[in-house]
Simulated assay, not measured.
Amino acid sequence: MENQIIDAHIHLDMYDEPDRNMLLKELKHHHVAALIAVSYHLQSAKMNLEFSRIDKRIKPAFGYHPEQELPSDRMLEEIILFMHRHQQEMVAIGEVGLPYYLRQEKPSIPVEPYMEVLELFIQQAVKLDKPIVLHAVYEDAPIVCDLLEKYSVKKAHFHWFKGDPQTVERMQQNGYYISITPDVLYEKEIQRLVKRYPLANMMVETDGPWTFTGPFTGEKTDPKMIHQSIRKIAELKGLDKEDVYHRLYENTIEFYRLLTV
C-alpha cells in the first residue's frame, strides 16, 4: 500500500473553485488522507466548515490570520462565538499569531494590539482544549513562546517556522510542533531546521495556495508535493523513507486528534 500523507496546513478556501475541486478530486490518487484547513477570518472559517461537512477529509481550524488589519471587537467576538458553537467540528484554533511580514512593510504598526488578540485566542485554545496553529517567525517566535508558556499550552503547531537557534531549542524543550513546506527541497535555512528538529515533533504542509520556486516553479501548489518533501526530510536526517512517512503521518493524527481519516 502506498504511503499516506496529511497536509497539516492549507488555506483551502483561498483556492479558486476549479482548482480546489481538482485538488480534492485527486487527493485519493496522490494518497492524501486529510487536509488541515486553516482559516484567515470569519468568512474563511465558515467556508472551511462547509467544506468539511461535504468532504470528511477536510479538517477545519478557525482563527484570524495576523498578517492583516486587526479585527474589530465585534468581529473578534463573532469569531470566538463561532469557535464555541462549532467546537466539535473544529480540530484546532488557527491560523493565529503575530504580523511579522506586515510590520516589515509598515514598521510603524505596533505589535502590542496583535499580542492581545493572540492571547485571547490562546485562552480559547485552553478553554476549548484544542491545539493552536501559529504564524510566528524570527523575532516574533520568542514572544509567542512567552504567551504559550504563560498559559501552559503544550499543543502548539508553528507552521513554516523560521527562527534563531535559541528559540528552536526552547520550542523543542516545550514539545512544540513544526511543519515543513516544499521549500525544504531548496532552502538551506529550512534544511538546517529539519536536521536539528526532532522528527517526533514534525509534520508536513503546503500552506497552499502559496506557491514555491526551485523544482516547483510555475506549478500550482498541491498536497502531492508533500511526497517530495518527505523524501528530502528522510535524506537530510539519514533515516529510512518508510519510517519517516509513518512517523509524520502518526504525528499529525495524534496532534490533531483525528479520529477519521
Rank of each mutant, 00 (worst) to 15 (best):
A33T: 09
H31D: 15
I93Q: 06
P182A: 10
H65W: 07
Q173R: 14
V204C: 10
K46P: 10
I58T: 01
E69M: 07
L134S: 04
N21Y: 01
Y186L: 05
N174R: 14
D7M: 07
Y245E: 10
V91M: 11
L81E: 11
A234N: 05
Y176D: 06
S179F: 00
L199C: 04
M14I: 06
K25V: 02
V144N: 04
R20C: 09
T260H: 14
L42Q: 02
G163E: 02
E69R: 09
V194F: 00
E219S: 11
S39D: 04
H157V: 13
R103W: 03
D73S: 15
Y40V: 09
M225L: 13
Q191G: 01
K25G: 08
H246W: 06
S72L: 00
P131S: 11
E95Y: 01
V133Y: 02
R170D: 14
K127Y: 10
E67V: 10
A8F: 06
K195F: 05
A8H: 06
T260Y: 11
I109Y: 04
R74A: 13
R85F: 03
L259I: 10
H30G: 06
G214I: 06
M90H: 10
P165D: 14
H84A: 12
A8S: 15
I132C: 13
S39Q: 02
G175N: 10
A234Y: 04
K232Q: 15
L185E: 04
R231A: 12
H29P: 00
L193V: 00
L120M: 13
P107H: 05
I109M: 03
T217D: 12
N21S: 12
M203D: 01
I233T: 01
E77S: 14
F82H: 10
E235V: 07
L49S: 02
N48E: 05
Q228D: 14
F158E: 01
R53N: 08
F161W: 06
R53P: 05
G238A: 09
L35I: 11
V111Y: 03
F62C: 08
N251K: 09
M171D: 02
D55A: 03
K237D: 03
P198M: 04
R247V: 15
H30E: 13
P60N: 07
V126A: 15
E242Y: 11
I178L: 01
D19E: 14
K241H: 09
A92N: 12
K162P: 03
Y40F: 11
M203Q: 04
D55E: 14
N174Y: 12
H135F: 09
L148F: 03
Q166V: 12
V96A: 05
R57K: 08
P182V: 07
N21R: 13
K46T: 09
F161N: 01
A141G: 05
A234C: 09
H246L: 10
